[in-house]
Simulated scan of single mutants.
Amino acid sequence: MDEKDREILRVLESDSRVGAEDLGTMLSLSPSEVQARIGTLEKAGVLRKYTAIIDWKKAGEDGVVALVELKVSPEREFGYDRIADRIARFPEVKSLRLVTGTYDFQVIVTGRTMQEIAEFVSGQIASLENIKETVTHIVMKTYKEHGCELQRSEGLERLPYSF
C-alpha cells in the first residue's frame, strides 16, 4: 500500500460517497486507476465496509445505546480472542474493543429500550464463561458519531463566571 492508497482511504473514511472520478481529480489518478486501487483494498480486507451515519432520533427511531465495560479472565492459549469472537457475534453488539485500564473490553450495544439492554447484558454477556464483571453506561445523548456532528447548539455562548 502506498501513499495514494492511504489518501484514498482517508477521503473515503470522511465521505464514502466520493466517486472514482472525483477521487482521481483530487489525487491526480485516472478513474480506472482509482477503481482498481479500491478493488485491491477491498480484496485485501483493508476497506471493509461503506456506511451511512444516521441520526436515528430525527428518523423517528429513538433506541438506546450503551457502553458496556467487561472484565474477563483470558483463556489459556487463546487469550482474549475467542471470548471476543463470541461477543462479536451478537447482533446487539455494534463495536467491541480490547482496551487498557480497569476493564478488558469496551462494547457498544444497541437496543430499543433500557430494559432490553439490561436483559441482553445480564442474560447473554454476563452469563458467558470468563466474564468476571460488567459495568453498563447508558448513552444519554450523542453529539458526534464517527467524526460527524449530530447536535450543535447554535448561538449558545458560555456564560461569564464571576464572584
Rank of each mutant, 00 (worst) to 15 (best):
I131W: 04
V107A: 05
S127R: 11
L159Q: 08
V64K: 15
G155I: 02
Y50A: 12
R48M: 10
T136A: 06
F90N: 09
R37H: 00
V65H: 13
V139E: 03
A126C: 04
V68I: 09
R76M: 07
V109Q: 05
A44W: 01
E3Q: 02
G45I: 04
G39C: 01
Y103M: 14
V18D: 13
G39V: 04
V11P: 06
S122H: 11
L41M: 15
A52R: 15
E75A: 14
L27D: 03
K4W: 00
V46A: 03
V109N: 04
E69P: 00
K57N: 10
G45A: 04
S30Q: 13
Q124L: 06
S122P: 04
R17A: 11
Y50W: 06
M26L: 15
G123Y: 02
L9P: 01
G45E: 04
K132M: 13
G79Y: 01
K132G: 10
E42C: 09
S32A: 11
I53E: 03
L41I: 10
E75K: 14
S122I: 12
E7L: 14
E154V: 09
K4I: 15
F120D: 02
G79W: 05
V121N: 08
V121Y: 06
L128T: 00
S16K: 09
E3M: 09
I8R: 03
L150C: 13
A59P: 08
S28K: 06
S153W: 10
F90E: 04
G39Q: 09
F78E: 04
R158A: 14
R37C: 03
Y80A: 14
E13Y: 15
V93R: 00
I38E: 07
L41W: 00
